[in-house]
Design a protein around this nucleic acid. Structure first.
Lengths: 139, 139
DNA sequence: ACAGCAATGAAAACCGTTTTCAATCGAACG
DNA sequence: CGTTCGATTGAAAACGGTTTTCATTGCTGT
């Protein structure tokens, strides 16, 4: 089997070294993290990956749908490797960043209906719920 | 009637010159606009308002709940003076920026319920639907 | 008038992200 | 092996939106 050189992989994930490193770091399935956090983390772990490459890898992975992107209220982009590849929304803890994935078929239906009422052709929609998870709830 | 000097106004809106200018420009009830757009617009109209003041005014007005803030996918903050002061969501046209306000009591209920299921104490939630309005739908 | 504090705005700092560009890597081919 | 050539990498610089700094201006109450 000839080794793949670029994104023509059967699977589309983790082709370049940076992408593999990022995916590995993200594999923990933890909270949403920013590119810079990720970079610091990789650096700390001895992984020699440049910040630029982290950004590029995240961008590529996000484009490929391998990771989910979330903008924090301050405008920073954060990333997470989600369990489901289906369309879903998040419950995000403002304190520790952990996220719970939720699907909401009823919501999706409602969105389509409202859009139709106002004669909008829907491109996309986002729903994010932020609060404190059980663990962080006790200030 | 003594003139008000600062935000201790009965109403909380448009106390400083910059705030008044911004509110006036936003009054058109049109699309969501960025701080810079607003600044250019005011400058064009002969209103001598500095960019810094526009930012400050928007921040104050947003804090006071006088205007709604929306982050574009690129991370830029855009503002709009909404018709309703009640909690609501938006249908936003990606082409012209126009927005339709929608209330969704059923959604609010659903959010609370989902949060409860996962033992989250909800702080806030956002739902934005983006697409093309009827006028812009024809490419 | 005058003191004092809020508002203003130009310029500089900030900060996350993207771009540039030269160096490096590595598969393919001879 | 050695060369070629496109892809990858990363340091540094550019970028763009936003915030901060700080000196100036303008009101307000005395």
């Amino acid at each position: 089997m000839t080794r793949v050189r670029n994104g023509h992989d059967a699977h589309g994930a983790g082709v370049t070294r940076a992408q593999r490193a990022v995916l590995a770091a993200l594999a923990a399935e933890g909270p949403f993290v920013s590119a810079q956090d990720l970079h610091a983390q990789l650096r700390g772990a001895g992984e020699g990956v440049g910040l630029t490459s982290v950004y590029r890898a995240l961008q590529a992975l996000a484009d490929a749908g391998e990771v989910d992107v979330l903008r924090t209220p301050s405008g920073e982009a954060t990333y997470r490797r989600c369990g489901s590849d289906r369309h879903h929304h998040h419950l995000v803890c403002t304190s520790c960043g952990t996220a719970v994935e939720v699907e909401a078929p009823a919501l999706e239906r409602w969105v389509r209906q409202v859009a139709a009422t106002h004669e909008f052709a829907v491109d996309s929609h986002t729903l994010e719920i932020s609060g404190r998870c059980r663990t962080c709830a006790r200030d």
